[in-house]
């Protein structure tokens, strides 16, 4: 299971942003302001970010540096946002882009 790392022998993760609530497909989850949306979603236990439009296969986080676009979601109504490099803001509405090519 994905989780937040509470203790680490080397890293001091420093001061995180304040705890805020964001909505992911209607579910409210806690997130740190400023962390990537994808990190918050993974930490909440959600692994599937979207399904592909043609074959409806699940996709999650792959590269985590904004290149592969596997983790794209709709954020506050704007589609195809790379959640791995987009920082969390309080109250964000995040949704999977579930649609089918006609």
């Amino acid at each position: 299971m994905p989780m937040r790392i509470e203790k680490h022998p080397i890293i001091d993760y420093g001061k995180k942003g304040s705890v805020v609530t964001i909505s992911v497909n209607g579910k409210e989850i806690k997130a740190f302001e400023g962390e990537p949306i994808a990190a918050a979603i993974l930490a909440s236990g959600i692994k599937v970010f979207r399904h592909t439009p043609k074959l409806h296969r699940p996709r999650g986080v792959y590269c985590a540096i904004g290149r592969c676009t596997d983790c794209i979601m709709r954020v506050n109504g704007v589609p195809s946002i790379r959640t791995c490099i987009t920082p969390v803001e309080a109250g964000m509405i995040i949704e999977s882009q579930e649609y089918t090519y006609e």
Partner: peptide
């Protein structure tokens, strides 16, 4: 490297 980013920078173990 993606996992490394998640664990070492964001403190999330995928």
């Amino acid at each position: 490297g993606a996992v490394q980013t998640m664990i070492n920078v964001h403190g999330v173990l995928p």
